[in-house]
Simulated assay, not measured.
Amino acid sequence: MKVLIPKQHGAWAMLVIPFFLGMIGGGAHVRHIPLFIGWFFLYLAAFPLTMMVKKKKTAFYQKWALIYSVPAVLFLLAAVWTLPALVWLGLSLVPLFLVNLYYAKENNDRALINDIAAIIVFAAGGLAAYWAGDGRLDGWGWFIFIQSILFFVGSAFYVKSMIREKKNKRFQYYSWSYHLILPFLSLAFGAGWAIIGFIPSSLRAWLLYGRKLPVKKIGIFELLNACCFMLAMGVFLLNI
């Protein structure tokens, strides 16, 4: 039986990096194990659920939604059992998932608003990981959450400007404008010297736009860029 894996390869960085930063900021705890496993399977389950909304191969996607949802629920419940307050964070993400379902139903998954809704959900993984480690939620947890959103929204702008919107001059200016203010937004929300993790994002948005790069190469560059962000933020959090 062929395993069903989501096709959005860039989403893996969004899944892992905020969570990893949350662990660094809040400190490692044994509850991170069930929390991450549950988070991982929840991401896997979200894909067949959105495909079911599109009414494509409904029986096939129902099967995989069930296969992934069962371990997701079990492991997340194990994490929530040790820190019940996490359930409030989970409930707060439901409206954002409904946004994703709406755009899936409209067959407009690549809409920027849909991407931003998904990015906020992924960034909340960092919030949850920080909370799970520290046992409480303070300004540093929100710092990780906001910085993750700022970075990955920039990634969404850039990738769209290079692929789906590459002939859209207006979108090009949106991307350039966002990346112009991105380091300053990061700094305004407390990045300090970790602002250097955002510099490669701005440079690649300006310097690579218009170049005929294969989609695979664009993806590799984005992975390297995400690693720069993670490294800068990780070192910064270790030294606060």
Rank of each mutant, 00 (worst) to 15 (best):
K212Q: 14
K212N: 14
L213P: 03
L213T: 02
P214Y: 05
P214Q: 05
P214V: 06
V215D: 10
V215G: 08
K216C: 04
K216E: 14
K216I: 10
K216L: 12
K217G: 03
K217A: 10
K217M: 10
K217V: 13
I218K: 08
I218T: 09
I220P: 01
I220T: 13
I220W: 11
I220K: 10
E222T: 00
E222L: 02
E222C: 00
E222M: 04
E222S: 03
L223M: 14
L223S: 09
L223I: 14
L224Q: 09
L224I: 15
L224C: 11
L224N: 07
L224S: 09
N225R: 05
N225C: 13
N225L: 11
A226V: 00
A226N: 07
A226Q: 08
A226I: 02
C227R: 05
C227V: 15
C227D: 05
C228N: 06
C228Y: 09
C228W: 10
F229W: 11
F229V: 04
F229I: 08
M230L: 12
L231D: 06
A232H: 01
M233C: 08
M233Y: 01
M233L: 15
G234V: 00
G234K: 01
G234T: 01
G234D: 00
G234I: 00
V235N: 04
V235H: 03
V235P: 03
V235I: 15
F236P: 00
F236N: 04
F236S: 08
L237G: 02
L237M: 09
L237R: 04
L238C: 13
N239Y: 13
N239S: 13
N239R: 13
I240W: 11
